[in-house]
Amino acid sequence: MKNNLLVSGSPHIHKPESIARIMWTVVLSLVPAGIAGVIIFGLSALWVTLLAVLAAVSTEFVFGLLTKKKITILDGSAVITGILLAFNLPSNVPLWLPVVGAVFSIAIGKQVFGGLGQNIFNPALVGRVFLMASWPKYMTTFVKPFSIDAVTSATPLAALKEGKIIEHLSYLDLFLGKHGGCIGEVCILALLIGAAILLIKGYISWHIPVTYIFTTALFTYIFGAKTLFAGDWLFHILSGGLILGAFFMATDYVATPLTAQGQLIFGVGCGLLTAIIRLWGGYPEGVAYAILMMNGATPFIDRYTKNRIYGTK
């Protein structure tokens, strides 16, 4: 959201913007990455995504009935949660996994807090870390791209963590997504197309993604190798879920700071945590954890970055 809250006298021009419209545009912006995922990993990626979406929407519907609130399945927010969750899963998981994850995302990540607009944490990420903690073996085996008989392969980051030499991966391969990984995170090109739509429409601002990616790059450049200032920062940007996380999950309207200043702090925090976990943590990838931790700190950031009311000190 841009900071264009100007107050002026009537008549006002009405703009056909609504929650549903924004949410469905976000869904549209995620489509390229989804198509890329299906091309790279085959049809199983499509089933995982569809099931996650279906489970998310049904859970939303059931909770609407239980709490006797307005049923909000048509506004598209549950669809986004389902898609984002599926994009964070490997394509070869058993098919009940996305279903369980999506139910958990919506029930615990969103509805327990009161539904749309009230969640403290990004629901999709809540689902992802739950699955990660519960069934690590499914969450960490990835399929080799374009393989028919589902040969497993490690993600570039996991290979790096285990100290293996990464087999002939050029930056172009990383950019196009020709490597193992989660469904929606591998094809940077498709993700950037989607991100461009959102940025041009003004649905997300540049503050969080840019500071997030820049901080991660800077930190991995400084500390990422045996000597200082020699880390492979481009590799860290192009691999793992950084681009997906920075543009689509760290920019959640509800769970991130309101002011530009707060968003800059949020982005830097995410970047630092991601880089620290990648370089020294036990997990190869830290995007989900970093964003969740900063989600938790968001109310606190908001409190100290309030805009000054005009005319007061």
């Binding site: 615990i108 990540g109 327990v112 807090f113 403290i120 944490f121 809540v126 870390v129 739950f130 903690a133 945590l273 976990i277 020294w280 943590g281 036990g282 997990y283 830290g286 989900a288 954890y289 970093a290 969740l292 931790m293 989600n295 938790g296």
Partner: peptide, 25 residues
């Protein structure tokens, strides 16, 4: 879920996100 139950659920999610640091070397 007012008060106590939600406080525990939030603590659970925070605890999950702190797991990102596990296995630190």
């Amino acid at each position: 879920f007012k008060d106590f139950p939600l406080a525990f659920v939030i603590a659970a999610i925070l605890s999950l996100s702190f797991m990102g640091f596990s296995g630190f070397k």
